[in-house]
Design a protein around this nucleic acid. Structure first.
Lengths: 353, 353
DNA sequence: TTGTAAGCGTTATCAA
DNA sequence: TTGATAACGCTTACAA
């Protein structure tokens, strides 16, 4: 009895080297060499091959190629989420990767070590040239080091991992927080609040240390409220900071731990009719373009986010070239707007919105 | 004469199935089956294999696997840049892809067809399950259709391509612009400006048509200034719109074409002491969180950006399952703040910043 | 100047 | 319950 034809035949098998070779009446080796320009081919033959390629609209299967050659020309990037800070870093990576002739792909992990592990495996098993990682809370460097093959270099960015040998590029977070407190002090504020992200990652920890140390040095009064590093978290931490239960402590100035929390915190202030730069001085980590168009403009601790991306790629390049680059700490800049209490007069006359 | 050992021996060859098989004293087939749970294996054997895997810290080479199986479980996404709108879409994609057990990777092309072509090839040659594309200005659908294998479905998002058969998910841009003009009209404004991106992409074109049609219907006076869809472009277009040379036309209300241009445009207004919602009514495309914390809050035409991502994935899924899904046009919402001139009183009393 | 053939590390089809 | 072995589509010695 004749068997029925299977229904799900793959109609269009993809065109391979062999198809091209047959059509051009040459060997697959020749086609490969034409494709890669990797040995002399008679002009006439080359033309025939090229024509066959065009006619069949052949495209090399890079998976096969990579399996053979072992490298992909692709850099993998793991970010925590698509917030504006990381997207700035990505722009830097893009810029740096281009002249090297590489490409890169991105995946986001959330603040979730399990997911970061999974995506790390995606990157490893796709044999990336290298992997750039913003390490999440819970990052297990021992595990990573044991799992990643020696020929796939890893570079951490934005967040160091304590006790690991992995090279990293981060911002001078400690110094940034310190400067902010010092600036508040110069304005004469004595009671300083800090709206901080609760994750156990180096950037927040460093900011916390810098804050605490400077508070102590200048003999100020402070209060830190930690919450999720999100809009909601910023709102909540603000609420707790200004809670009526804190009779003894209503902050005159507040430092905010990142850009997302800032939005939530500003929302809180607006709802409670607290005027930025007048009733409460505010400085926040992370510059974004919109910080300039609000009134008063935000005073922010600005990271070199794009440069962070560029640097991460450079470090990666060095590792690939067999060097052992050192950790990099990028400068931060206290960029003065009006939200910290500076330029009150200018703000008043400039009060357009 | 003995030859010198080559200097660049690859010290650490990666661990393969074969290594594991040897160590566990089984065949590679068995190891493969243990890994993939694809046939019964005696408990004892399974344990031995698992142990070998752990001891060697073996990780499957997915490149080889894909070469064999032909599919990758990866979705490729091509965005134009990492602006907040696309990152919202990405969050939607992430959400939708997760329950399907897929992963996705992103690359950004700029408004640059050549680069988009290159990255499209990266995606094709890595044999993605499917590819989601925000088509750039210059997108050649004929070319794409000829180049992409039949078994890799493509879904366009954010931007349709005229005259192509490719399925797309976009926002009701026409309707959004129309509503904005109508809203201005209800406020009594007669002279309406439009700060628009100059790229030839469907979203801008649709917004332009919607704007023009409603202007005509309501018999209003208008002026469109096109520029790069960036902060600088927004600033420049604003400058031209309010140029002293336009004696006959100084806009009472301005529609802004996207979020980036909005920032530039707001910068322009501030510099020239034009008060938003008082001297000039403003409505902008694209909601971002910061739009709520400025004064007055922005009135925006809000796209369902996250839903766009979810929908794109759903469409992709349908195509993979062999269906022929239709184009989707997502609802937009005119989200009222104070910048359009609404709630003047509330703004005044609420004038915290 | 071109062709042959051996892998790369998997999966899958047989056979044992 | 397990093992041999042939692909997958490419690159690259080595041969011709």
């Amino acid at each position: 009895m004749a068997q029925a034809k299977p229904q799900n035949v793959k109609v269009k098998k993809s065109v391979t080297l062999r198809d091209v070779a047959k059509k051009a009446d040459v060997s697959i080796a020749t086609v490969s060499h034409v494709l890669n320009n990797t040995r002399e081919v008679r002009e006439q033959t080359r033309k025939r091959v090229q024509q066959a390629i065009d006619e069949l609209s052949y495209h090399r299967n890079d998976i096969a190629r990579e399996l053979k050659t072992g490298s992909s020309g692709l850099v993998g990037v793991l970010i925590v989420d698509y917030n504006p800070f990381y997207t700035d870093v990505l722009r830097g990576i893009e810029e740096a990767v281009e002249p090297l002739g590489w490409k890169f792909v991105v995946a986001s992990t959330g603040e979730n070590w399990e997911k970061q592990k999974e995506l790390l495996h995606v990157m490893i098993s796709r044999r990336m040239q290298g992997i750039l990682i913003a390490a999440v809370d819970g990052f297990d460097s021992k595990y990573v080091e044991s799992v990643v093959p020696a020929d796939i270099p890893i570079v951490l960015f934005d967040r160091r991992v304590a006790g690991s040998q992995m090279v990293s590029v981060t911002s001078m977070n400690f110094e940034g927080a310190r400067q902010a407190v010092e600036h508040f002090y110069q304005h004469g504020y004595k009671k300083i609040g800090f709206v901080l992200g609760k994750d156990l990652i180096s950037s927040f920890q460093d900011r916390k240390s810098g804050f605490e140390q400077e508070i102590k040095r200048l003999n100020l009064i402070s209060r830190i409220e930690e919450d999720y590093p999100s809009i909601e978290g910023g709102y909540e931490a603000g609420r707790r900071l200004f809670s009526k239960l804190n009779y003894d402590f209503i902050p005159e100035a507040v430092l905010v731990g990142n850009n997302m929390m800032l939005i939530g915190f500003l929302e809180f202030l607006r709802e409670h009719q607290l005027r930025v730069g007048v009733d409460v001085a505010v400085i926040s980590f992370d510059y974004q373009a919109w910080c300039d168009v609000i009134t008063p403009p935000m005073t922010v601790i600005r990271q070199s986010s794009k440069k962070m991306g560029v640097t991460a790629v450079n470090i990666l390049k060095q590792k690939i070239d067999g060097n052992s680059p050192d950790d990099v700490r990028l400068q931060v800049e206290l960029s003065i707007g009006g939200s910290c209490g500076c330029m009150q007069k200018i703000n008043r006359s400039n009060h357009l919105f």
